[in-house]
Write a protein that binds this DNA or RNA. Sequence first.
DNA 1: CTGGGGAGGGGGCCC
DNA 2: CGGGCCCCCTCCCCA
Length: 517
Amino acid sequence: MANCIVFHTQIASVLEVLANAAVADICKLVDDDYAVFRLEITQSQKENRTLRRKLQLLELKVARERAERTIRPSSVKILDRYRGMARGDGNLTGGHRSFVKPARHNTWRGDQPINVDEGSGTSAQNVIVIESADTEAAGPGVKQERSEGEEDPQHSSDIQTGAPHIVTEDLTTTPAQPRDISRTPNAVLKSETETLTRLRRLGCPPTPRSEYLLYGNQSHRTVLSHRDSGDALQTGNDPTCSYATETEKIPGDVPVGLDTNPIRGDWNLYSSSVYSEGFLDKKGDGLVVDEVTVKEEGDDPLTWNADQTHLGEGQSQGNTSDFLDYRESLEPNPNIATHSPLHALRDRNPVSTSMAPSDSHGRILFDQVLNSNDKARVQAGEGGATSGGTKEKRFFCMFCNKGFNCPQKVEIHQRVHVGVKPFSCSQCQMRFSQAWNLKIHQRVHTGEKPYSCSQCHMSFAQTCNLKRHQRVHTGEKPYSCPQCEKRFSHQHQLKMHLKVHTGERAQYYPQTSGHES
DNA sequence: CTGGGGAGGGGGCCC
DNA sequence: CGGGCCCCCTCCCCA
């Protein structure tokens, strides 16, 4: 019995031990699981925090955008305002910003409506980015913009990371991001415009020189990228942030902007950042002056009226590619090549056509330019490149040597070469290099036809069209073929007709006609 | 092919 | 000096 008791006792103790061991195991398992679970919870919480933070950042961004839209409907304009100068612009284009076409359209989305109107809301961030891009020189401006709402350090960091970097960023680097817009020619132009603006602020008159500088900058930056694209350039300029607060506008241009809301879609971003900036109308007439003239063509998102760009004809339409093309065309031209603005700019010598470059490099180029200008002057005296006039034309276009009697005229004229089109229609995507052209264009939308024929009910939006029309009544045919007796009322008609003589249409008109000379 | 109109580009002039 | 406007040129489209 005693043995039995002992045995039971031992069993009990063994069981107890086992039980304890089991409990310990269980506890251990529980603890382990709990630890794991806890770890998971911790991780989840971290994730939640991260996501929440991101959400906050996004909200901040959104809020900021809204604030900019509402508080500063024209913020874009302001930003866009001359940061620098070109065409593009565009991007170009502080004042000028508008001018250049984005070559690598990549920056531009093909589907992007180029409308200048409001609406599309660009995000502040985008704006900032663009600005920053533009602004290389303008640094400070960018900060101003940012200052608006940067509560969240991260947020600000996000944005700023972009901006500051952009500022120092080489525009020629690869594109493909929103920021790329800045690389567009327009952006370039804008920055250029900014440069101009700066020069002006510094007391330097916007002489052709500034243009050179701008131009140079462009070539330096974007031209390259544009070229790469091989697409028609789109001119978009974007001004740099630094000019954000600036109200300067390009001389000679009156911002007749129709846009009331600068901040709109991507296009707006583009435009605003690129071109508009410098071109917003001080008067606030409503005409948007900033965007770059861009034309959508097929897949090339930002084609700058590539089809219309005829640098050779002096009508580049703000296309970076045009710009490039122009540059190319210049090279082979002995008269112009030597003083190609691109070269001059490349050296970045702030030398005006009338001033000597600071460094030897620039000096050479500059001298060349001067020589060219001298030639131009001679030509002018001989009725050459200069536009007629009794006034002395002391200012010459660095691109074509055309002479003008004041630097502002040169600046405006050079937009033709650079592709800067600071004046944009708020009702369509059309852009213009001169305010007046925009004004005339808007008659298309308003239906205004102030010029009416005294002999019929016809009325026209342009005086020249009326004059041409009146030939119908007078029977006048001012265009006569020098090789035959035919006369035409339309110059184009004569032009087409002349092909008969030149043989261009020989295949259609056998020379048996006797017109062949 | 011709006639005619729409519209943009750009230089010059005037205020 | 700068802006507004005029004028001309040119291209494009349509009937």
